[in-house]
Design a protein around this nucleic acid. Structure first.
Lengths: 240, 240
DNA sequence: CAGTGGTCTAGACCACGCT
DNA sequence: GCGTGGTCTAGACCACTGT
């Protein structure tokens, strides 16, 4: 008879409804959402149901909640991004300044092979390739190659410079909020390019971190390969 | 006046009370806890408060909950452990058999330097040093050095062999449940020992993962250094 | 069918941040 | 003091699992 109705809890509907409004731009990054009771009235459910939905959205960093203040759409600010998406620490345990970035090259290419595959593209679309180095306290320690489908970042290739926090820039300029990512970490040997870009000796071991990042709506919007000076930095993972 | 009462929610008290009973062995790994209503009666709070506490314990993997069945104390079974604490994947994307382990050496040493430091020991205590390799489909791909304070693992040095899933073994033999860990990932160059243990060529890049693991009560109980053949495996991190 | 966790509601009250 | 999220309670009902 196949009479299976998968059953979807009401709070998940509410969660989706709110998410869609955020994606649609009804509430923009940094803005405050209506209170729990107002949302409950708007959506015709009880306050407890809205609460559960908002807490779930808080868990996945779509919004953040502050007691006594309100619920706000998450911003990809540099500080938050460091916490969520930047897990490099100094080997000696020292805390230093915020990382900056130096743009080396930006060009338009066609996505082929691994780039096309990792970005899950059907065709050989145009993508922007960004090459840059990251510096902490003026010392270069990471080189990055970043691939962005031009489809999502129209006009990006015309830009002259880029800010330190790309994710915040994506959000402000292109209404793309990075929300999830997965990092594949491998060990590689430094080549001449690494020597040129971050000054590591040829033959030295490096971490190569290959990241695929997704926006709020689940679409893959960025592929990024970082090569990290392992003599200076390590990658830290907390397992709970 | 300094009349600050930090305010501790009731459900956190409940959470701690339940955690303590689990640590004390009142409910053992794999056993079912009383139902929400029974716990509520026992502790003199409402069912909703118990629910919030149990869900929090579920989040941190102290218990797991199954609708229609019950709430159970988590077991460090091989399958769960792989999901939580084993994040190595094959570079070619293939899924293969479960990892096995081959014991190379076990000896008793005094904790000094980095070992003492990472295990947060005050004195040069005795620790068990375990050297083993891990194999997937009979191919060696990881070598591990594991350091365990003898204080927590009394008699371990007398054992002849060890099972594949150490964490399950800690739990069954020593009533120690591994609950949290942090991994520091670096890149290194294979040396003669790596060549002997996992057959990687000298000079090849490896991942070195240095893990500190904590038990339910928060105590550091294990320090482990893994050296991973990066030609075969990578370390995968999901950022949400 | 009995028992468990999961959802949803309604209402009271508390803690917090801002003004 | 006001408005916000956070806690706690009580009760009804639903969905899932195993017997």
């Amino acid at each position: 008879m196949n009479n299976k109705t998968p059953f979807k809890p009401l709070y998940q509907e509410v969660q989706q409804a709110i998410t869609h409004k955020i994606i649609a731009g009804e509430w923009k990054p940094g803005e405050m959402l209506p209170s729990e009771f107002q949302l409950a009235d708007m959506l015709g459910v009880s306050q407890g149901t809205v609460r559960k939905a908002l807490n779930a959205l808080g868990e996945s960093n779509v919004v953040y909640r502050r007691q006594g203040v309100g619920t706000f759409v998450s911003e990809n600010t540099l500080k938050d991004m460091l916490f969520h998406f930047f897990h490099y620490k100094f080997n000696d345990g020292s805390e230093r300044g915020l990382p900056t970035a130096k743009l080396i090259k930006m060009r338009l290419i066609k996505a082929r092979g691994k780039i096309k595959e990792e970005l899950a593209l059907d065709h050989e679309e145009k993508v922007v390739e960004i090459t840059r180095t990251r510096l902490i306290d003026r010392t270069a320690c990471i080189s990055e190659k970043i691939y962005l489908p031009l489809r999502y970042f129209d006009g990006l290739d015309q830009e002259g410079g880029l800010p330190n926090s790309l994710y915040h820039y994506y959000q402000e300029q292109f209404q793309i909020t990075i929300n999830k990512a997965s990092d594949k970490i491998r060990a590689v040997i430094a080549n001449q390019t690494d020597n040129d870009l971050i000054g590591v000796a040829l033959g030295q071991p490096l971490l190569e971190v290959s990241r695929v990042a997704k926006a709020l709506d689940g679409k893959i919007v960025e592929y990024r390969i970082s090569r990290v000076d392992s003599e200076q930095l390590h990658y830290l993972v907390e397992l709970n």
